[in-house]
Design a protein around this nucleic acid. Sequence first.
DNA 1: GGCTTACTGTGACTAAAGTCACTACCTGAA
DNA 2: TTCAGGTAGTGACTTTAGTCACAGTAAGCC
Lengths: 209, 209
Amino acid sequence: MEIAEKFKNVFEPELLKEIEAKAKLVQVKEGDIILDIGQTVKIIPLLIKGILKITRADDYGKELLLYYVHSNESCAMTFTCCMQQYPSEIKATAESDVEFLAIPIGVMDEWLAKYPTWKSFVMRTIRNRFNELLGTIDQLAFQKLDERLVNYLKEKSRATGSALINLSHEEIARELASSREVISRLLKKLENDNKLLLYRNQIKLLQAF
Amino acid sequence: MEIAEKFKNVFEPELLKEIEAKAKLVQVKEGDIILDIGQTVKIIPLLIKGILKITRADDYGKELLLYYVHSNESCAMTFTCCMQQYPSEIKATAESDVEFLAIPIGVMDEWLAKYPTWKSFVMRTIRNRFNELLGTIDQLAFQKLDERLVNYLKEKSRATGSALINLSHEEIARELASSREVISRLLKKLENDNKLLLYRNQIKLLQAF
DNA sequence: GGCTTACTGTGACTAAAGTCACTACCTGAA
DNA sequence: TTCAGGTAGTGACTTTAGTCACAGTAAGCC
């Protein structure tokens, strides 16, 4: 199978074999929700292709971007949730068309004891997610909305590998837990400062950004 | 040794023996900093007595309370940091006089594979800390300062087991990453609403709180 | 083309939070 | 006892963000 190729530098050979045997390849379309808040975690996703967006929502409608899961990564929340069968606190949406290996949660416990590379992978993933949450907290606590917006756009651009961002102001506002008008105004200011160009449903970041 | 008593329902007997053999009992005074941002994690603390305060700071001075570590708990950050010898992203301060078992980080890897109860403990700890960070994010993103203040006071009261909170407005402001005057005003409003009583360096929460 | 709908831009206002300036204390040490 | 330093209260103001109410415009569709 070609799939295991992507992980051949990460996992030891026996583990790769186990993954091939036990994991199921899943494909989802852009916009699909892989896991919603309150749902029980049933599998661990190991991303092959595409990007997952992890968000948090409050009781009424407002949402907030936490971080992205890229190819060759997984989501730390599922590790810890699945081992004690707790419901998810977060929502995972396919940011693009996504392919992932669905690993049944049952093997988690065994692999952790058996495969050092799995243990490292899990710990590394958890550490990275922790740091990303801390980054989110930093921004919320210490930065103003204009700085957060700039960071958001940078990260988005990095995640998609493009200077063109295809989002409406409304969507951006949602992910920053703000409001459309405010984002519009801040974007306008950035445009006036020659940092970016605004189009309908699209933003082009300039070099100065 | 009496110390292992506290954990006899958490860990299996052989692990308890290992802990007794390898861990060192450490005592620190209220206010001592156990671990600062940027320092390398050298031990895993297993709390026996007292409370640790985990905070995050920005580049200039501002601080923010993340969560407390209580007796019989540990800090998830150290687990993941220590396994790859990364520097700490957080600061741990003794909120009261504290006693803890210092477990050398070297055993972490081995214990994780060897002792199911250790593995559970680690995963449970990580899960709880994740949820606490999410709680912090929720508050920052979705709640106003007055609600955050109320939550802060409630949590503080719960952590110390007392309706008397011995803090200046300045200190509270620091932990909420706000400013003294704002906190003073909000506290005054709560006092006018008969939710609490204000004294010098002390706040008394009333039943209505 | 004309119509609908979603997206964007903006002025005016309000609310929340932070800052500045100053007063008035309480308290402990000299 | 006095005095210095930390603490608290408050008015006035600014900044930041959110809300309301429109107007204009681009895009898709019948």
